[in-house]
């Protein structure tokens, strides 16, 4: 109440002694965090040691790294990896969306089929499944369309139908679909039931209820997990090397098998995996921002 009078007094009369300010004018000092600075220091030292090691330890063999990093062989291998990722993701998520809607449908038949699929493909290790597909022609030389247990109309040679790349995409996509289905289902059930109810009460057609009202809101929780899956699939494509498909990891193995320079070639693959994962993370950031409309966070 008398703030002005006090300040004016201290301003006019005498030297500015270290006058005690009014209780309501006490300055605020932010809390200090000394341990943070200690932590920063420790991490910086460790980082410096690591970088120093990268530069000075001849074992990293940077000349060999740069010799192979941007070669035609590596690029074509990278292209195979990207193709596997794109096809695996697209097919996996499309099939996953179908499975998720089956599990959420009111039909017990569809629920059980989807549940059974997810159970089966989450139970079989990916590498085992891939080897099965790779050897499918050993089990079934021919595939045919006809009446079950009856006459057949059309025959395909199994080996012609799926090349190795086709078998790999199939294996990755089928595996991915089981996980994608659960992520999509999780996203859908996280949307308040009142949204569907309001859409139904307004007479909005079923497909539109899903695609216009529920899915965009479900995307908020689908995206972080979905991006995780895409990135994990991208690196998981390296498992396809067991099928002798010339993707990135297989190709560097071939090269270091010949030259014996294991570490620099593993670094070639690692750096490319890091570069592309970074790109995917940037894409994720923008896509998530797009779907955050109308929300606080």
């Amino acid at each position: 109440m008398s703030t002005t009078s006090v300040t004016s007094v201290s301003g006019t009369s005498g030297p500015p002694t270290s006058a005690v300010p009014l209780e309501t004018d006490l300055p605020i000092v932010a809390r200090r965090h000394p341990w943070r600075w200690v932590g920063v220091g420790v991490v910086l030292v460790l980082l410096a040691m690591f970088v120093h090691g990268l530069a000075t330890n001849p074992g990293w063999d940077w000349p060999t790294f740069f010799q192979f990093f941007a070669t035609r062989t590596i690029f074509s291998a990278l292209w195979v990896t990207v193709q596997l990722t794109v096809y695996g993701t697209v097919l996996g998520f499309v099939l996953g969306a179908v499975l998720a809607s089956m599990r959420l449908s009111s039909s017990p038949f569809l629920q059980v089929v989807a549940w059974g699929y997810i159970w089966a493909f989450r139970s079989i290790p990916l590498i085992v499944q891939l080897l099965f597909w790779f050897n499918i022609a050993y089990l079934y030389q021919q595939l045919s369309i006809g009446i079950p247990f009856g006459p057949e109309f059309v025959h395909f040679s199994t080996n012609n139908l799926f090349g190795p790349l086709g078998a790999a995409v199939l294996g990755l996509a089928l595996h991915q679909a089981a996980y994608a289905a659960e992520i999509i289902r999780g996203g859908i059930i996280s949307v308040d039931a009142g949204q569907t109810e309001a859409a139904a009460a307004l007479g909005i057609p079923k497909p539109r209820q899903f695609f216009r009202i529920v899915l965009p809101q479900a995307m908020r929780s689908i995206l972080p997990n979905g991006a995780n899956e895409v990135i994990s699939l991208f690196k998981g494509t390296s498992i396809v090397s067991v099928m002798a498909i010339p993707e990135l990891f297989y190709q560097v193995q071939v090269i270091y098998g010949r030259s014996g320079r294991v570490v620099p070639l593993l670094m070639v693959a690692t750096v490319w995996y890091i570069v592309l994962t970074t790109l995917l993370s940037i894409v994720q950031y923008y896509v998530e921002r797009r779907f955050a409309r109308g929300t606080a966070r």
Binding site: E197, L202, I204, T295
Partner: peptide
Amino acid sequence: LRQRSQVGFVFQTFNLFGH
């Protein structure tokens, strides 16, 4: 759904589409 579009319904919790 056609029948419902002839009836307006207002919910206790509004249920506006947040996005």
